[in-house]
Structure formats: C-alpha cells, structure tokens
Design a protein around this nucleic acid. Structure first.
Length: 103
DNA sequence: ATTATGACCCGAT
DNA sequence: AATCGGGCCATAA
C-alpha cells in the first residue's frame, strides 16, 4: 500500500471520466479518509500531476464550485466543465446527472 | 516534535 | 440567506 495519501488521491482523481465530477469528500473517502476532504483540495492546488489529474473535475460536496487557482478561477472551472458536458444547476454542478460513480 | 496553513464540512446564530 | 466558529487531517517549514 502506498503510505502517501496524496499519491492515492491523484491516482483516483486521474481516473475520473470526462463529463463527470467527483466531490472532495468522495475522493478523500476513496483515498482512505472521509474527513480529509481539505487535504484533497490542497493536493489539487499543488497538482504535481497537472495533465493527469483534472482538478477542475473536483467540486464541493453539493456540487458547488470551490476555489480554483488557474484562469479566472471559478469562472474558468465552470466553463471547462460545461465544455466537457457536465450538467450545471445555476452556479453549481448537477450531481444528480454528473457525479462520478466508482465502478 | 510542534506550528501554521488550507481549492472542506457542519452546525449554530 | 449570509456570516462565524469549530473540527478533521495531510503537507510544508
């Protein structure tokens, strides 16, 4: 097993299919700690696997677009998700249709 | 080992 | 609805 929590998160985040989104909480849970949602966000910001880890596909627990360090921030993130076919509900992601399910 | 930080989550006011 | 404070946890210094 990998002792590095981050490594696991990146691995999971990297397998998120296009047009789908995952929540920080879900990634944290899959990585082993449900309460480490914050850590996931930090790891995304660091994003050492930029091309492999589409951090823009990671959203808040209820689909709300939380921080983003690139482009125009939330604006760019939303546009990118829309471009990938993710459904939106106002300024939030429609998790009912676009939340990622682990197989 | 300890302190500080943060792209979160939750409950209370 | 908006704001505030507390909790949880990995990473960096």
């Amino acid at each position: 097993m990998d002792s590095s929590f981050g490594r696991k998160v990146y691995k999971i985040a990297g397998k998120i299919p296009k047009g789908k989104v995952a929540t920080y909480k879900q990634l944290a849970k899959l990585a082993g700690n449900t309460k480490a949602a914050r850590v996931v966000g930090i790891l995304m910001k660091e994003n050492p696997y930029a091309p492999k880890v589409p951090c823009h596909r990671v959203v808040g627990w209820n689909g709300s677009l939380t921080g983003y360090s690139a482009g125009n921030g939330i604006i760019t993130k939303k546009e990118m998700l829309l471009s990938e076919g993710v459904y939106f509900k106002g300024n939030k992601v429609d998790l009912a249709k676009s939340q990622w399910f682990v197989n």
